[in-house]
Design a protein around this nucleic acid. Structure first.
Lengths: 122, 122
DNA sequence: CATAGTGTACTATGCACATAGTGCACTAAG
DNA sequence: CTTAGTGCACTATGTGCATAGTACACTATG
């Protein structure tokens, strides 16, 4: 994974995991890697990994059981809600960005239509 | 201005100024507030304000003259290029966000169409 | 009970960000 | 020349992020 130095690593990894959850690549109830393994996989520090799971639990996406590990929530409804929430967040960030440079929703749709499609089909 | 604690203040203010430039509220050649004034206006430290102007100059958006102040670039072409660059950035961030949660360009347009329009007309 | 895997807690270091404060140099205007 | 406004340089402090390393507690398994 390529980290953006402008964004905290724990946030980037947490987002990556949430994306895997809402796309079903990590189904409800799935066991996540242990903190030390997660650190190895992403090339980060175990302390940072622990913090990531704490954040995911705080958001209700995962549950942690001492001595057992961290697991994706069992509630498919929670996962669906998370997906919609992430979509809404992306849309409102996008529209706010465009509004800041004097563009509206129509302009937004036009921009997306004209956007280069390289690597958009995967 | 309301600062997001997750994003460096200098970045947020620099973005705000660039938005004012590309929307014409700060026309080419306009004089920007002095570093100390900028700090007062945004409620930040003069050191941070100085850094913001350094960043804007690094991006070619502003020019600084010692003893005189900092000014918006004279080149309307540069301003137009900046606006397009900011728009492209917003679009690609948005599409990357949606792709991360398993949505494509068609979904994006649909989401924007259905988006709540409260305070979208200004 | 012994072990491996796990979460949790703690100290310490380096870095960037933001703050506070001071001083100096340059420019234009009186 | 003096003054006000300005950019610029420097030291110092506090905070959050990320790292490194160590130690302890819980759980399941054999």
């Amino acid at each position: 994974m390529n980290f953006d130095p402008m964004i905290p690593i724990w946030l980037q990894v947490a987002t990556s995991i949430k994306q895997q959850i809402v796309t079903g690549r990590l189904p409800p109830g799935a066991k996540l890697p242990g903190g030390r393994d997660l650190a190895l996989q992403y090339g980060i520090n175990p302390n940072t990994a622990a913090r990531i799971y704490q954040e995911l639990e705080r958001e209700g996406v995962c549950q942690t059981q001492r001595g057992l590990g961290t697991f994706v929530t069992d509630s498919g409804e929670t996962v669906q809600r998370l997906r919609e929430e992430m979509a809404r967040g992306a849309v409102s960030r996008f529209l706010a960005d465009l509004k800041g440079i004097g563009m509206n929703r129509e302009d937004a749709i036009e921009l997306i239509r004209k956007e280069d499609n390289t690597d958009d089909h995967q």
